[in-house]
């Protein structure tokens, strides 16, 4: 028989999470507790669009519950595709979504792009991603349980350029690993809310290519004009 108290608590927790406007990504604590690995990924494209995916590895016993918990993960996107892999020892469940445009401003999440229009005299385009990640707990004792069991959410962010700075606040129990355009946060589920800041820069090769072409043409025209001017100069006999 289903536990009506648990469902009520879950509903309350979801309503609380929805009302928390300061959060951008909210992960149900039930999903973290009952899965062996939970990986949330965000791939930010140069044009400001993004691909969001969640992958959960859980015991086959939770095969029926994992899709529901995954559906409750809020990340400012309606989950689109879902695919699962049934293995002998575990059950892998994935969902993904395409976000047409990440929010440019806001407390919960903001992607700031400093491109040619914003800063025309730089060689690099800079991207700054700010996001608040939280968990929807079922009980007040959940943070303590998360600390005792050392539960964490793996959050992978792929930026459009090389990552120059990546921080998580508060950093207690969490870790950050940076490799090229990718940064992997291991966020402690006991912390409640955590703010992520990632900065990346990318060479403006297209802009530089056009500039180089324009400069080459100007030099070519100047050389032709100079040669013509020298040719028409009167010479001493």
């Amino acid at each position: 028989m289903a536990d009506p108290g648990g469902a009520w608590h879950r509903l309350l927790s979801l309503l609380q999470a929805i009302s928390q406007r300061g959060l951008w990504a909210t992960v149900p604590f039930a999903l973290l507790v009952n899965s062996s690995i939970t990986v949330l990924t965000l791939t930010i494209e140069p044009d400001g669009s993004a691909h969001r995916q969640i992958s959960v590895v859980a015991a086959p016993y939770f095969r029926d519950q994992v899709p529901g918990w995954t559906r409750d993960v809020r990340a400012d996107a309606d989950w689109d595709m879902a695919w699962a892999v049934n293995r002998e020892d575990d059950f892998v469940y994935n969902r993904d979504a395409r976000i047409a445009a990440l929010p440019e401003s806001g407390e919960a999440a903001a992607l700031t792009i400093s491109d040619v229009a914003q800063n025309p005299f730089s060689l690099y385009t800079t991207y700054r991603w700010h996001e608040v990640v939280g968990y929807s707990y079922l009980y007040d004792s959940d943070p303590a349980a998360a600390e005792a069991t050392n539960k964490s959410l793996i959050y992978e962010i792929t930026m459009p350029g090389t990552v120059t700075n990546a921080t998580v606040t508060p950093a207690t129990g969490s870790s950050t690993k940076t490799e090229g355009p990718k940064v992997v946060f291991e966020l402690a589920a006991s912390q409640g809310q955590q703010t992520i800041e990632v900065e990346a820069s990318r060479l403006r090769w297209g802009y530089l290519l056009v500039l180089a072409y324009l400069a080459a043409y100007v030099i070519y025209c100047s050389a032709c004009t100079l040669r013509h001017w020298l040719r028409i100069q009167p010479r001493k006999i």
């Binding site: 494209e45 140069p46 044009d47 669009s49 691909h51 689109d80 595709m81 395409r98 297209g206 802009y207 290519l209 056009v210 072409y213 324009l214």
Partner: peptide
């Protein structure tokens, strides 16, 4: 110059978009 600018525009907008139609989904660069 026009060819160069067109190539740069195409390369800068190579992010994938998802097109859905009657339950079928196609993903291709913008």
């Amino acid at each position: 110059l026009a060819v160069l600018v067109s190539l740069v525009v195409l390369a800068e907008n190579w992010a994938a978009v998802r097109i859905s139609f009657l339950g079928l989904r196609l993903e291709l660069p913008k």
